[in-house]
Design a protein around this nucleic acid. Structure first.
Lengths: 218, 218
DNA sequence: CTACGTCGGGACGCAACCGTACCGTCGTCG
DNA sequence: CGACGACGGTACGGTTGCGTCCCGACGTAG
């Protein structure tokens, strides 16, 4: 007989607190304070910070979204990118997502939840999008959906969630065009065709600079 | 007359601790413990956790790297992507970089340092790479280097630092090919030419699902 | 060889949280 | 309308980290 309004208040407080200080510094006391709630009310609902965050995040992130068929790969991409851009520009999401992604690198439970709630979804979308394009004859079949998702999601995620650079007006259409072209150029996954163009690079990796324990370059 | 060996031990400990618990949870005591050092030795060198991390990280991440001219855009991209992939697969870097990127969203000082140490560098590389390609006649001039960097760095960063999916053998060459194609398809930045292809999408954004405060989708 | 400064270690008071327990209050179900 | 249960609040002992200070040991520069 827990009161739902209070559960909701706690959930909202967790999201705000996550955005403000990140998962690592999130404290139950701060959540209770922000929600105007006793710690008791929180412990009555979840047994730990991890469980609480997992439940709340997966509930928020867990629905699938319909992707309309615009009739062209480029149009589909543009729609998808706009949805992504909208989500990644939301002030809460743009703080919480990168934070949890980083935390997932050290916490298997978080990694699993995000994998389930976000990336599985993306993968489905990627497959759907590729399938349509193949049906239309816009792409050859056989491309790896994972690689496609990297190509689609990566640039926008980098721009908005990592570099945090503002988006110019025509950015999304241009990016959609570039991605569409890129998708068309991925060799089919069986790695059959050579890639021996003029600039084939010898595998002796270029010098890193001489320091061995300083790989912090992006 | 601070002993350099000890400074180095502290630096290494900070990196390991950063990777293990993240910036948010990083504590001076833990660093001292891990380095086998008194807290005194740390406070003698830096006045705060933030200052310490900034100094150490920017020193590690701050050098520029030479990018050999392979003779083709695709070859240059492949070299660059290999360097990136190597860096992002380093166990310390792959934990620390996303963590600091997320932290940068809340801490302007960290954001500034990363901007300076990493992204400025990337931007230069992007400009160099684009410039060469334009000189070779592989690309039209006028592309926005920021967008190019997004396209180059985004997918690999997403793959390695966010999704954390292993890299298949031929991934890098395929990605290089896709990016090269994508770069060729970006409309020049003055937004002159129309992008009115078949699938132009109307700007009424597609339905998000009906919930207003749940933007946690990626 | 002496003297100075850094070393690791330990102790300090203070603050924040942890997770639990116990209040008296209030709303709601039966 | 009575009883049950969730509520906010407070307090608890315990843990962790802060930033500072002092110690005796060591090593290096002069």
């Amino acid at each position: 007989m827990l009161r739902g309004e209070i559960t909701d208040a706690i959930r909202r407080a967790v999201m705000k607190e996550l955005a403000a200080v990140g998962y690592g510094r999130l404290s139950i006391e701060a959540v209770a304070r922000r929600a105007g709630v006793g710690k008791t009310a929180i412990y009555r609902r979840w047994s730990s910070k991890l469980e609480m965050v997992l439940e709340i995040v997966s509930r928020v992130a867990g629905q699938s979204l319909p992707l309309p068929d615009t009739g062209s790969l480029r149009g589909d991409l543009e729609v998808l990118l706009r949805i992504l851009a909208r989500a990644l520009r939301h002030p809460l999401a743009s703080q919480i997502i990168p934070d949890l992604m980083a935390e997932a690198a050290r916490n298997p439970q978080i990694a699993g939840t995000l994998e389930e709630a976000l990336r599985a979804n993306q993968r489905d979308i990627g497959i759907l999008l590729l399938g349509r394009a193949v049906d239309r004859g816009e792409l050859p079949s056989g491309a790896d959906p994972d690689e496609a998702v990297d190509l689609i999601v990566g640039p926008l995620y980098w721009r908005l969630a990592v570099a945090r650079t503002p988006l110019p007006e025509a950015y999304v259409p241009r990016l959609a065009a570039a991605i569409a072209a890129g998708l068309g150029a991925i060799d089919p996954v069986p790695s059959g065709g050579g890639f021996g163009g003029a600039g084939r690079v010898p595998d002796g990796l270029p010098p890193q600079g001489g320091n061995t324990d300083a790989p912090l370059r992006t």
